[in-house]
């Protein structure tokens, strides 16, 4: 049978029953709520819209220097600046749900009950397709430096949110842990529909003239191309440990990077820091994937998901 040369490749994927027209979306906190980037491209070209974190109450964010560049990366200590759930529901959600693409809301909190309350409130709003549970806010909880870096904490939080969450529940994992597969398994066992991974790596840069950390918060989350190989490795490992879909995140700035994550086992990907240094990074990744598929005779993007996985010992 002859292959139809003219047929456009199929980029659509399904994440826990949710249809995405393509597997590419922005990473939380790296895209505002899209309004800034609507000036560079058509937001409806994206697979989904993922906005910046919403916290139980408005947060002004951190004082002092909030970002610093590192080799092929950056550290940020924004401090989850956001106007809170009321302003989100009033000013943001009505606008973004009009776009007609799935809207994922990233939820961050400091305490278990806050996660539960916020998850209940936001997941019941029409137009919210998924709750991305940010499990790595660098804050209290069990006396850890970060909230959910142990399987027990992940289990507690996801189990508590699951019954109140009326839409897809997608925990976002911290990489600041010894064994990320343990966190992933805990999240799956607690009822997660999919996993977003990864959030930023905790890092520090010192100003040697001032003899002080550069960031006002001292430490910050590292992101950008420099973290990509670690993120790919983590996705690869977790894809072998759980059966729920994975959204791969970490240093993706080109279609090649996106393909690495898909081949490692991710069903979809998020583009974060790259939007800062190339405002058209997301549409370029989507376009690049499509061109690659045409050039390589790949009719359906699902064919490449996990394609690089080799049997244990291989």
């Amino acid at each position: 049978m002859e292959l139809k040369q003219s047929a456009r490749p199929n980029l659509s994927v399904t994440v826990a029953g949710m249809e995405l027209k393509n597997p590419v979306m922005p990473a939380s906190g790296c895209f505002g709520w899209g309004e800034e980037y609507a000036r560079f491209f058509d937001l409806t070209d994206m697979g989904a819209l993922v906005g910046k974190a919403v916290t139980p109450r408005p947060r002004p964010g951190n004082a002092g220097v909030r970002i610093v560049e590192t080799p092929s990366g950056m550290l940020n200590a924004i401090g989850l600046q956001n106007p809170g759930p009321e302003a989100f529901l009033r000013d943001v959600l009505p606008r973004v749900r009009e776009l007609g693409i799935p809207v994922w809301v990233n939820v961050s909190a400091n305490a278990l009950q806050e996660y539960v309350d916020l998850c209940g409130l936001l997941s019941s709003q029409p137009g919210v397709s998924a709750i991305e549970l940010n499990l790595s806010c660098p804050n209290v909880g069990r006396g850890h430096a970060e909230f959910c870096v142990t399987p027990e904490a992940v289990m507690d939080t996801v189990s508590a949110c699951r019954p109140v969450c009326r839409t897809h529940l997608i925990p976002k994992l911290s990489p600041n842990t010894t064994d990320i597969t343990a966190l992933a398994r805990a999240a799956e066992a607690a009822g997660a529909d999919a996993l977003s991974m990864i959030n930023t790596f905790v890092g520090m840069v010192i100003d040697i003239d001032k003899r002080r950390p550069v960031l006002g918060n001292r430490t910050g989350g590292m992101s950008g191309p420099a973290v990509r190989p670690i993120a790919v490795r983590m996705v690869y490992e977790v894809a072998g440990a759980v059966s729920i879909p994975i959204i791969g995140i970490g240093g993706i700035s080109t279609w090649r990077d996106a393909l690495e994550f898909l081949m490692a086992g991710a069903t979809a990907v998020q583009v974060g820091t790259a939007s800062f240094f190339n405002p058209r990074a997301i549409p370029e990744v989507i376009q690049g994937l499509e061109t690659w598929m045409v050039d390589h005779g790949v009719a359906n993007i699902r064919e490449v998901i996990g394609a690089a996985r080799v049997p244990t010992g291989g």
């Binding site: 906190g29 790296c30 800034e36 910046k52 964010g61 610093v68 939007s275």
Partner: peptide, 20 residues
């Protein structure tokens, strides 16, 4: 210090007199 220059990263903030 700026990362995006367009309002998305919230990295370039200065304190307002009215707060925030």
């Amino acid at each position: 210090p700026m990362a995006c220059g367009v309002g998305a990263c919230l990295g370039c903030t200065v304190p307002r007199r009215e707060g925030g």
